[in-house]
């Protein structure tokens, strides 16, 4: 009997363990990400939430090992589990291997698509360039066919857009082009760094519906960075909350939003303006964003936490883990209100 030994792919597609990312500047070093461990489930949309400067982009770029200069990864491991084959230690790949890894396995849609394309080449030229750089010997017809396919996904007219220069496209179109671009080589994971921040709400919704469709139909995992809770609630399956480079809370969207264990999460959700209701009744989180050069001793959220205790101010709390859920608070999974 022929045994169909289908080796099931690992349930996680990416596992990050104790990642530490530093930005060594001339006079001091900023630690952008401190001891973050999380796993991305295969086929799911995981969101990372946090204020500007919380380390979302840095963490995501570390998956592709293209953290913007002068950031370096000082510690931790990043493991990628491809659908077939052995797991890949991303940090140990050689330069040639990382070039193949990028875009074939993991692709990224950047934050400001305004200047993410080379301004002196047409869209089609840049698509073709990527294909060729990866050593794929596709014929022109095959490239065109693939481009039509991915353009179709993002609802762009190939005949019109392909021969345009980047400055001839609108913001929304450019963002869709970048999304189509990320699909070009059939990656297993797409990282989206605030893909709709610069766009209006209607386009935003449109793009997310596209993304959702890609995720369902192609089974591509996604890592979504945003600071918009509403989007997280609507589109993501899992969510992680980052503050000052630390993972404050992680879990399924349902669990995190319903339970709101961490005080920061609580504050975020409460601060979201409601479609109905009084604008004056907004409840922002008190205090100011953390200065990464001058972090408080103990829990980094302590200056702004309404439930802060003396113990919080003494030392940084450990991360409490329960199944796929984790919380970095002194209270852990207990009730404290």
């Amino acid at each position: 009997m022929v045994e169909n030994q289908i080796v099931q792919p690992h349930e996680n597609i990416v596992e990050i363990e104790h990642a530490v990312i530093d930005y060594p500047l001339r006079r001091y070093t900023i630690r952008a990400v401190t001891d973050v461990s999380l796993s991305l489930k295969r086929g799911a949309i995981t969101a990372l939430v946090g204020e500007s400067g919380s380390g979302k982009t840095t963490l995501a770029s570390s998956l592709l090992r293209c953290i913007s200069e002068p950031g370096i990864l000082s510690g931790g491991e990043v493991r990628f589990y491809p659908a077939e084959g052995a797991p890949v230690e991303v940090l140990k790949l050689s330069p040639r291997e990382i070039d193949r890894f990028r875009w074939e396995k993991v692709s990224m849609v950047f934050q400001a698509a305004q200047s993410a394309l080379n301004p002196v080449y047409t869209v089609r030229a840049q698509f073709e360039e990527t294909v060729r750089e990866h050593g794929m010997k596709w014929s022109r017809e095959r490239i065109e066919q693939k481009m039509r396919e991915v353009f179709d996904y993002v609802k762009l007219d190939y005949d019109r857009v392909a021969r345009c220069y980047p400055h001839e496209l609108s913001g929304g179109m450019k963002q869709r082009v970048m999304i189509a671009f990320s699909l070009l080589l059939d990656p297993e994971l797409i990282i989206l760094d605030e893909p709709t921040t610069a766009l209006d709400v209607i386009t935003q919704d449109y793009i997310f519906s596209i993304l959702k469709r890609i995720n369902r139909e192609k089974g591509i995992s996604m890592l979504l960075m945003t600071h918009d809770i509403g989007i997280v609630a609507k589109f993501a399956d899992y969510v992680g909350v980052l503050y000052a480079g630390r993972l404050m809370e992680f879990g399924s969207v349902f669990d995190v939003f319903r339970e709101r264990r961490h005080p920061y999460t609580k504050g975020l959700i409460r601060a979201t303006p409601s479609l109905i209701g009084d604008l004056e009744a907004l409840k922002p989180i008190g205090g100011s964003p953390p200065d990464l050069r001058n972090l408080p001793q103990g829990c980094v959220f302590s200056p702004r936490c309404p439930y802060c205790t003396d113990a919080c101010r003494e030392r940084e709390p450990d991360t409490a883990v329960q199944g796929g859920r984790c919380i970095k608070c002194i209270h852990g999974f207990e009730e404290y209100e």
């Binding site: 293209c66 070039d99 193949r100 400001a112 750089e133």
Partner: peptide, 12 residues
């Protein structure tokens, strides 16, 4: 940005 974006695409 496009330099970094290109690097992310695995362009040599």
């Amino acid at each position: 940005d496009y330099i970094n974006a290109a690097r992310a695409r695995g362009i040599g």
